[in-house]
Design a protein around this nucleic acid. Structure first.
Lengths: 198, 198
DNA sequence: GGATAAGTTTAACCCAGGTTAAAATCGAAA
DNA sequence: TTTCGATTTTAACCTGGGTTAAACTTATCC
């Protein structure tokens, strides 16, 4: 287990700052596993049921969907350092996953199996709270995203992406950004051109 | 308290089917309050901090945002029977609300103050679980919404709205539906016209 | 360093939704 | 019923993103 030490302690610290007591955290020690992903490897595959909740030590992942007819890919979300990663809809409902989750750069993840997590939920009030906070955070993330689509232009969303998530912005090609913003490559080019003009 | 009896028992039954034990539920009995909303009344106002989690006994609410410059309204979500209602982002973070939440028809709500809810979270593992499930449900709701914007046309979203939420569809004017779908009134008219044509 | 692949931009054309205002329809209330 | 206001549709014009394919730029690798 000694090779997980640093990463586990990072997670302990982050959960601790969200209110988790060390003793409660210790309950989970046997369950966390560390995995290295090479760029291009998948955290979760289409049609699998997502069985693990991951915690990104470092790296960038994209969660995307493929149109069965056209083969076209569309990015739903990105995950990066110190975020929890899962195909969360599939994970919560334990239904077949509609997404792929792919490492965009070499990445490192601590992950836990849902059965162990449910065990912790049952054993410990603190872990139940952890589950609540992960869910609330995921909600917030997606909510902000939806608000973007409703209330903002693609140009606004592009600018925000650049400002608020520079590490993601720099790690992935522009056509993935375009997809995430809900537009096509050429449209993003036009937006970028418009922006330098002013 | 006797006038809340029926509504409380409905809530007990619904939470029970999500796994809440009656004894745990009983802890909350002193806290739920019942409120009748007339059509047009507000559950939550812009710039308030949302302090209550509501449970819709019956009725329809819309949560919407107003553009400060143009005064234009855009609908974010609808809530109806047996759903939990809150300006959830504001509720979770206890920050000033960016939305209005308005009753679209005469409605009845059971609500609980966040302080009492936090008390229950602290007292009871079961209630902590309740909080997790509410958050997970809210996540799922918003996620499906975002997926709609990314992967579906306004026409698809309109058709789904009609099929899956007929009670909402029938309770609110079309221009509110249009707003929820992210389009303008005339566009919805064009879509409807296209649809009868085929 | 030149070849090859990957990523980005450009151009030309198309189309759906935005915008505005007027017309038509519906509904409640007198 | 007639009328007034609210809602929905229509019309005309505009705009920005979609689509496709080619051109250009940047990495990467032998």
């Amino acid at each position: 287990m000694s090779e997980n030490k640093t990463e586990i302690e990072l997670l302990r610290k982050i959960l601790g700052s969200a209110g988790m007591k060390p003793e409660a955290f210790d309950l989970s020690l046997p369950y966390w596993k560390l995995k290295q992903y090479k760029k291009g490897e998948f955290y979760n595959e289409y049609k699998n049921v997502c069985k693990h909740l991951g915690f990104v030590i470092n790296g960038v992942f994209r969660i995307y969907r493929v149109n069965n007819d056209t083969g076209e890919e569309k990015n739903m979300l990105f995950f990066t350092d110190h975020q929890f990663v899962a195909s969360y809809k599939s994970f919560l409902a334990q239904t077949a996953c509609e997404y792929y989750t792919e490492a965009m750069v070499d990445s490192l993840i601590l992950y836990i199996h849902i059965d162990h997590l449910n065990e912790l939920y049952g054993q410990s009030h603190q872990w139940e709270r952890f589950g609540r906070i992960v869910a609330e955070t995921a909600f917030h993330e997606v909510m902000v995203n939806t608000e973007g689509f409703l209330f903002k232009t693609p140009e606004d969303r592009y600018r925000e992406m650049m400002e608020k998530h520079p590490n993601i912005f720099n790690a992935v090609p522009l056509y993935h950004i375009a997809s995430y913003l809900g537009i096509q490559g050429p449209s993003l080019s036009r937006i970028r051109k418009r922006m330098v003009g002013r």
